[in-house]
Design a protein around this nucleic acid. Structure first.
Lengths: 284, 284
DNA sequence: AAATCTTTGCAATATATATTGCAAAGATTT
DNA sequence: AAATCTTTGCAATATATATTGCAAAGATTT
């Protein structure tokens, strides 16, 4: 099984960028590739057909059709969804962590749609679109989320400040600069430690200034008072020991995507200045 | 669905014996037929290739390849996986970002089990269990993953160093301290910028020292040479513009969980000293 | 900077596949 | 049985696909 992938892994000659691109396409959508001719595959990878043939030979195949045959074999092996769910069941029976994690996260993702509506996402995106500076506030368990959202928002051309794990005193110091047109996004989770220090004081302060607030997290944030302008609470089906926040992550992503669609010029600007900066710094 | 069968049923012209033989083969083993040329199919039915072409035209297709395309479509529809992505496509058409994101990530998670085995996870956990210091290396798109894994490993009582976004020179500086019993985990993704600077040099260096290396990422890391001791490559069904790394995240989590199970004393120690530290610092 | 090696696209060629006219064999009608 | 129609294979042709030599561009070494 998985002949082709195996073959690539164990191949120890040189592979060019074009080869890698091709391999990546073959591995990521093999079930498309099985129907493609050499030149069609080449087009998909923005590469010349001859490169396709040469790669096939490099990997030890007789030619392109031979390689495609091998991919077909792999795909036929893996297809038939009986196979998949059978695989899943057996690996769960085996006590496999990976399979049960996957299962759990899939359930969690499915549950997201019951917790958060597209309407709420739109609302959040609108708040962010109007924002001057966006503050992300949270404790360390929210750090991966904050890192990701920070990145996405900056790419959309927005100014973002991250306030991670701050004590009351330091947080106050960082928030003096908060202004009317800013937005505060505060992340809150129940276990093991709940909300960022002075979560409620934070929201009160923001409201006083006239800044908007968004709370994102699990069900524990539903009880925060005063209420934020928008509360995006994701409930988990198992609420267990899981540390992954896939559900919340996906909510953040949806916010960022909706925002980008809303404001394509600004996003483009952000990307352009990123590119310019990048090349400028390369030049040095 | 079942376009071809339908078409045949509703066809009211004359069909010869040869036609019927052909149709019977197509309907009884369509998943074979999708790969056959006209003459191969002809041979299977003990018929001449020209008959195949004529039948295709009779049924209203432009020619043999056109008919085969239709059969392919039917087969792809029925193959289970397609069902999921079709569902996804419709919800994208609906314009709901959140719902389509959720569908996409669920498909990505399901695909993880085809990319990575629990055996590989166990192997990785064993490497980590024996490690003295663990180095996490990656570029900024991997930062959320690194942040998360860092946290989890520290909680399991391990020493972790994070090398984010470093240039060759700085990375070299940080890696002088690399020793024989250490492990380097390097994250690599294709787009938009591929691998961390000097990815390959890094692995070479580690091997020289005798340290172990683990590569985690998408299919682009399969082609890295020299090979790491363990390569955990997660392929995505769509490989699209998605920035979320749920699949890879879950692999990291599985590593951490398996490790914690393997080494419960150490993990406990880690948690205890965390608690002690925490209360000590509260006291101040 | 010059020399060498590597990679890649182009264009020519080779091979495979699909299509069609024609004629022969078989079926059907008169 | 003769005439006509239908079906099919063969062989010629058209089209699509795969492969390869060659040269240019780029990367690497000297």
């Amino acid at each position: 099984m998985e002949n082709f992938k195996h073959l690539v892994e164990s191949y120890d000659g040189k592979l060019t960028t074009a080869d890698r691109d091709l391999i990546s396409i073959i591995l990521s959508e093999p079930s498309e590739v099985v129907y493609l001719s050499s030149s069609e595959l080449a087009a998909k990878a923005n590469v010349h057909a001859s490169t396709v043939v040469r790669m096939a030979r490099k990997l030890g195949f007789e030619g392109y059709p031979d390689m495609r045959k091998s991919v077909r074999y792999d795909v036929d092996q893996n297809s038939g969804f009986a196979n998949i769910s059978q695989q899943r069941r057996t690996s769960i029976a085996h006590g496999s962590n990976l399979a049960s994690l996957v299962e759990g996260e899939m359930a969690a993702l499915a549950a997201v749609l019951n917790s958060v509506s597209q309407g709420q996402i739109d609302e959040g995106a609108q708040l962010l679109a109007n924002a001057d500076v966006i503050y992300l506030v949270g404790r360390s368990s929210a750090e991966p989320l904050m890192v990701h959202l920070n990145r996405r928002l900056r790419r959309a051309g927005l100014r973002v400040e991250t306030l991670l794990n701050l004590q009351r005193r330091d947080m106050a110091e960082r928030l003096i600069s908060l202004q009317e047109n800013d937005v505060v996004i505060a992340f809150g989770f129940q276990a093991p430690i709940s909300l960022p220090a002075s979560f409620e004081a934070l929201i009160k302060h923001a409201q006083l200034i006239g800044a908007k607030t968004i709370n994102i997290g699990d069900t524990s944030i539903l009880t925060v008072r005063p209420r934020a302008n928008l509360t995006l609470s994701v409930s988990r089906p198992d609420e267990g020991a899981m540390q992954l926040r896939s559900g919340v992550m996906i909510v953040c992503e949806a916010l960022a995507m909706t925002l980008a669609n809303k404001n394509p010029e600004r996003a483009l600007l952000g990307l352009e200045s990123l590119e310019r900066l990048r090349s400028d710094m390369q030049g040095e």
